Simulated scan of single mutants.
Amino acid sequence: MEARSMLICIVFACDLIACCHCNYYSKTSPYTPPAQKITHLHFFFHDTISGKSPSAIKVAHPSFPTAFNDTPGPFGSVFVINDPVTVGPEKTSQVIGSAQGVWVSTGQEMLELVVTMDIGFTYGEFNGSSISLMSRNPIALNQRELPIVGGRGKFRMARGFANLTTRFFDHVKGDAMVEYHVTVIHY
């Protein structure tokens, strides 16, 4: 029994010594962030539910009637999106990126979504960069604001806001085109 206790003490001591000599962090040094920049972006977002090549697909829906049951996205529906982002309002306009994420129909009194998406840019000065948005999106209102909660690439540690204006919405099919005016504060 004493040999076993001795072995446990040796293992414990070795673990203690090993932990004292391995750090999961490095020495802290003062951080001086670079100067903040403000970038204004303007683009159009095309959300297409209908047709042979939709950019938004319903992946879950309620199993019983809910609010707005006569719409393509009744309360409780979940959609996954990969929507094109263009320079102009036409679908044929130059594609500069895509918005990928999820939107959930959460409104019971008016059409409302909770949106989580990353708008990644694939063209121009911000190619390879993205901005992330997450918020409630009251789509029944023609104009609304969503917060920028992060980003990557040139928009690393971004924050800001996006002013959205619905330019087209088909109440039967659910297709929409939304104009974005974005103010991004980043380093």
Rank of each mutant, 00 (worst) to 15 (best):
T28C: 09
N23Q: 12
F75G: 00
T66K: 03
K91E: 06
P74R: 01
K58A: 07
F45T: 02
Y25C: 05
H61I: 00
S53Q: 09
A35W: 04
L16D: 15
C22L: 12
H61E: 14
N82C: 03
H42G: 07
H42D: 07
K37G: 02
Q100W: 05
Y24H: 09
Q100T: 06
A18S: 12
I38V: 13
A13Y: 09
H61N: 08
S63C: 03
H61P: 00
G97F: 01
F64H: 14
Q36V: 02
I57D: 08
T86F: 11
S50D: 13
C22T: 11
H21F: 15
P72S: 05
I49A: 14
T32L: 13
G88P: 05
G88W: 11
T71L: 07
L16S: 15
S26K: 10
G51D: 12
F79T: 00
V85P: 00
L7Y: 15
I49E: 10
V80H: 03
P62W: 03
L16Q: 12
I38Q: 15
P30I: 04
S55G: 09
A18H: 13
S77V: 00
F68N: 01
V80D: 01
N69T: 00
Y31K: 07
F43A: 06
N82S: 10
T86D: 06
T48I: 14
S93A: 13
F45M: 12
H61S: 14
G76H: 03
A35Y: 11
V95L: 07
N69F: 08
F68K: 01
K58Q: 14
A13K: 07
T66Y: 09
T39G: 12
S29V: 09
P72N: 05
